[in-house]
Lab assay of single mutants.
Amino acid sequence: HRQALGERLYPRVQAMQPAFASKITGMLLELSPAQLLLLLASEDSLRARVDEAMELII
């Protein structure tokens, strides 16, 4: 289940942060499945989480 969510998330994360897409997707997969579904449904929520992840990385 998580694998399938990751496969759906990755291209969207890659479009926002290509250099760190794998790392960010891995970080996002730590969230609950319900939270992941919310990110897939909301571009704004996904962008906010990706921005948060980038702050942790750099």
Rank of each mutant, 00 (worst) to 15 (best):
V13C: 04
Q17L: 07
S22G: 10
M27N: 01
A4V: 11
H1D: 15
L9R: 01
L29S: 04
L38D: 13
Q14G: 06
G6Y: 15
M27R: 03
V13Q: 02
P33M: 15
E55C: 07
A53R: 03
L31R: 03
Y10E: 04
L40M: 09
A19P: 03
I24P: 00
D51E: 15
V50R: 00
D44G: 08
A34Q: 10
I57L: 12
A21I: 01
D51A: 14
L56C: 08
I57M: 06
L56H: 09
M27Q: 04
S42F: 07
E7M: 04
P18W: 03
V13N: 01
A48Y: 08
L38R: 09
Q3R: 10
S42Y: 08
Q14Y: 13
L29V: 06
L29W: 02
T25R: 05
A21L: 01
L9I: 11
L9K: 01
R2V: 15
A21H: 01
R47A: 07
E7C: 09
L37R: 07
H1Y: 02
L46D: 00
M27K: 04
A41V: 13
L38M: 13
L31K: 03
S22E: 14
G26H: 13
A19C: 07
M27W: 06
D51C: 07
L40E: 07
A15R: 08
L36W: 02
R8D: 09
L38P: 10
E43D: 11
K23D: 07
P11R: 12
Q35E: 14
L36M: 05
S32H: 09
L37V: 11
L31S: 05
I57K: 00
A21T: 04
Y10A: 06
E30V: 06
K23C: 06
S45L: 14
I57A: 02
Q3C: 08
A4M: 09
R12S: 06
I24S: 00
I58R: 11
P11F: 09
R8V: 15
D44W: 02
M54T: 06
I58P: 04
F20A: 05
M54L: 10
L46H: 00
L38N: 12
V50Y: 00
A53C: 10
L56G: 06
L36Y: 01
S42W: 05
K23T: 12
R8N: 10
T25K: 02
E30A: 09
L28V: 01
V50M: 02
V13H: 01
M54R: 06
L5D: 04
S22C: 08
E43C: 05
T25S: 04
G6V: 15
M54K: 07
S45M: 14
I24K: 00
A48S: 10
Q3D: 14
I24N: 00
Q14A: 15
S22R: 10
S45Q: 14
A34E: 15
T25C: 07
L56V: 13
A41F: 08
K23A: 15
A21P: 03
I58V: 11
Q14T: 06
L5I: 13
S45P: 02
Y10K: 05
I57Q: 02
E7N: 05
V50S: 01
R47E: 04
A21N: 00
L39S: 03
L40A: 03
Q14I: 12
D51V: 11
K23F: 08
R47V: 06
Q14F: 12
E55P: 01
P18Y: 03
M16P: 02
L40F: 07
I57C: 04
Q3Y: 02
R49L: 14
L40R: 00
P18L: 02
A53L: 15
R12L: 15
S45H: 13
P33W: 12
M54A: 08
E7V: 08
F20M: 08
L28K: 04
L9V: 06
Q17K: 08
P11Y: 10
R49Y: 15
F20Q: 06
Q3A: 12
L29H: 01
F20V: 03
E55I: 10
A21E: 00
V50E: 02
P18F: 03
L9W: 02
G6S: 13
V50G: 00
A41K: 10
Q35I: 14
Q17C: 12
L46T: 01
Q3S: 09
D44K: 09
D44N: 09
A21M: 00
E52I: 07
L37W: 08
L38V: 12
A19L: 09
M27C: 05
S32T: 13
D44S: 11
L29P: 00
E43V: 06
M54P: 00
R49G: 07
E7Q: 09
A21Y: 01
P18C: 04
D44E: 13
A34G: 10
L46Y: 00
L56T: 12
D44V: 10
G6H: 14
L31I: 08
M27A: 04
D51N: 14
E43K: 07
A34V: 10
S42H: 11
H1R: 12
D51S: 10
K23G: 04
L56N: 09
A15Y: 05
